[in-house]
Design a binder for these strands. Sequence first.
DNA 1: CTCGAAGTACGACGCACATCATACTTCTCT
DNA 2: AGAGAAGTATGATGTGCGTCGTACTTCGAG
Lengths: 108, 108
Amino acid sequence: MPPWEIPSDQLPPVAAVQKLLRALADPVRLEMVRRLAADPAGEAPCSDLYEGLNKSTATHHFKILVEAGAFRPVMVGPSRGHRLRRDALQEAAPGLLDALMGALDREN
Amino acid sequence: MPPWEIPSDQLPPVAAVQKLLRALADPVRLEMVRRLAADPAGEAPCSDLYEGLNKSTATHHFKILVEAGAFRPVMVGPSRGHRLRRDALQEAAPGLLDALMGALDREN
DNA sequence: CTCGAAGTACGACGCACATCATACTTCTCT
DNA sequence: AGAGAAGTATGATGTGCGTCGTACTTCGAG
């Protein structure tokens, strides 16, 4: 969907809370977010963010996360990948990401 | 579903993050939570928490919120109602509820 | 005791969406 | 230039779930 490498000034805004929640409420996508959030660089190639899934299914989930404003498509090394939009998320819903990741950790 | 007035010591535990998110990711249920969170007493009769919905649909949503551990069924005055389980939610996912409600407010 | 109001239970229906297979694009590397 | 890896697009499929209508329960008020 993205013409690849969306310019910073025309990234989709982080979606309304309800839509954002929908994006995060899927187990596959929540795991994708968790992995990116755990990554020190905050970015990773697509294939590092899932397992045991058809590639096209993964693309589908990425699309939803990008449209929700949580991910930003980006080149990472030679491959396509995604970066977690920590700043934008923090501005739209302060503390939400931290609370979620904290809860996921504790859950282990 | 509840034998009415569940004893405190056998309330369902707050669900795993992913299930909790699913419960909150529906617009109707999110609004229910918002209203209860906005209520100073933190509780309200069922009918105060929705509008323009079939009663049985509302019951369905309440059930999901109770099973997710977000609501506790309780008598409020002469009617049945629900109380927001702030404490339990805070323990399971510290800061999550606050972050959500804050984001909803800012969304005005 | 009956009536009505407030919820719940149950069944049916329709749509959204998670999934997959296949085909296509677009890189990089040799 | 050709091969292969990595993602994307598209179409098909099945199911989960949000919705409703109707019938049932329960409770308070008259």
